[in-house]
Amino acid sequence: MTDTLLIGLYALAAGAVVGTAGALALRILRKSSILTHIVVLLTVTVLAVAAGVTAVAKAMFLSGHDLRVVLITVCAAALVSLAAGVFFGRRLAASAVWAQQARDRERHLEAGRRELVAWVSHDLRTPLAGMRAMAEALEDGVVADWATVAEYHRRIRVETDRMTRLVDDLFELSRINAGALRLIPTIVPLREVVSDAIAGVAPLAATKKITLVAAESGWPTVHAGERELARVVTNLLVNSVRYTPADGTVHIDAGRGRDGVWLTVSDTCGGIPDADLDRVFDIAFRGERARTPDSGGSGTGGGLGLAIVRGLVEAHGGRVGVRNIGHGCRFEVRLPAG
């Protein structure tokens, strides 16, 4: 019993010395990665075992050969433990990084949602207040001449259309974010989709005296959802027309590359600040301080147009980007080969 107690005390003392050194090492390396901490802990454990075995062997007067056998066995086990620790440590570190990225992404999305609610509330409240005032004026007979009544009716219709587009955009974005978007891919002639989009945006472009130019040839077909692809092209054209000054030009082109189909929309908007390039496709980002919708109805409302573009393109397995060129910028959509 006395020998067993002495063996335990020898092992405990040797382990305590190594453990103290390990605690100091961890304190020094407290700002290091999780993998480093795991390696240090495993190393301290192995060294504590080796120190305890050595102390006990010396106290028991084991031969040098027996001590070497024991230490070789401990070292072999230590190598296996360290290898397993490094493997799982890397996975744990990767999981920690992924979790942090997920938290950062969730905070970013939550901030975007709060901003979106604030901006959409403003975009709904402003036209509703104007429509209410005009409706009360018509109801109370404050305006009676035919021209003013007709103008009030026109403005109520315009604001109603604007709010309808805003609600449609919110619904589309909610489907994308909820994963409820169901694509029905077909073989779509890109030329026809672009022609229809240009026809729909032409009246808006005409009010700003902006020229819409489409490439004459080289239009490929693409395997995609026709409705969703039309929404992508229309939103890109509307965005370019909205930010291009009067007498500007918006050019659209497409083609087929080795990795799929590409489509570009270039304008003469004057370029996008470098600090905003990475935020262009964020929800509710407009790149302007003014929150009042323009009278031409060019905006999609709430800064949702480009966010919808990114969601629809990524739903097709593609990607979308933007860069400055000359006196404007170029939006480029790439879709994988069908």
Rank of each mutant, 00 (worst) to 15 (best):
W98G: 04
A25F: 13
G52C: 00
L35I: 14
N239R: 12
G130C: 05
R286D: 03
L41Y: 09
G302L: 02
L335P: 03
N235R: 11
V322P: 04
R231M: 11
L9S: 08
P336F: 09
V49Q: 03
N177T: 14
P273M: 10
T211F: 03
T160K: 08
F331Y: 15
P293D: 04
P245F: 05
R289S: 14
A77M: 12
G89P: 08
D169R: 08
G179W: 08
S121N: 13
L41R: 04
L29C: 12
G15C: 11
S174A: 15
D294E: 12
G321Q: 05
R90L: 15
G296W: 00
V70Y: 04
R113D: 12
D161V: 10
T211D: 09
T244W: 07
G15K: 00
V40D: 03
R113Y: 13
Y243V: 10
W262P: 01
G218R: 07
K58M: 06
S32W: 09
L29Y: 08
E172F: 00
L71K: 05
T160L: 12
L42K: 08
V18D: 01
A137M: 10
I325T: 15
F61M: 09
E172K: 05
E139I: 10
V46Q: 09
E216S: 10
A337N: 09
V238I: 02
P273V: 11
G22I: 02
H327D: 15
E115Q: 14
V222A: 12
T268P: 06
I187E: 13
T244L: 06
A102P: 05
T164D: 02
G302C: 09
S32N: 08
R155Q: 14
E192V: 11
V188H: 00
L183M: 13
R310I: 03
K31T: 07
M163Y: 09
V142G: 02
A246W: 02
V167T: 15
D267C: 06
E192Q: 13
Q101D: 11
V232D: 01
T211W: 00
M60V: 05
C329Y: 00
C329G: 03
V320P: 02
S32V: 06
D253W: 00
D169G: 15
K209Q: 11
V97S: 14
R323P: 03
V201Q: 07
R258I: 05
I184R: 14
R105F: 10
A315T: 00
G179Q: 13
H223D: 07
D276M: 08
V56E: 04
I156E: 07
L181T: 09
A275Q: 11
Q100A: 13
A205H: 00
E228V: 06
G287I: 04
A150E: 15
E288N: 02
T244A: 04
G225M: 00
L181F: 03
V201I: 15
I176R: 06
R27L: 10
A76N: 12
R227C: 01
A275S: 13
R310P: 01
S95R: 14
A99S: 15
D104C: 12
A197G: 06
Y152P: 02
G305E: 03
I34W: 05
A102S: 14
D66M: 05
T292R: 12
R165H: 14
F285I: 04
E136R: 12
R319S: 14
D161P: 02
R125I: 13
A57Q: 06
R113M: 14
V194N: 02
R258E: 14
I156W: 00
A76H: 09
T2S: 12
A135T: 15
S121G: 15
A50R: 02
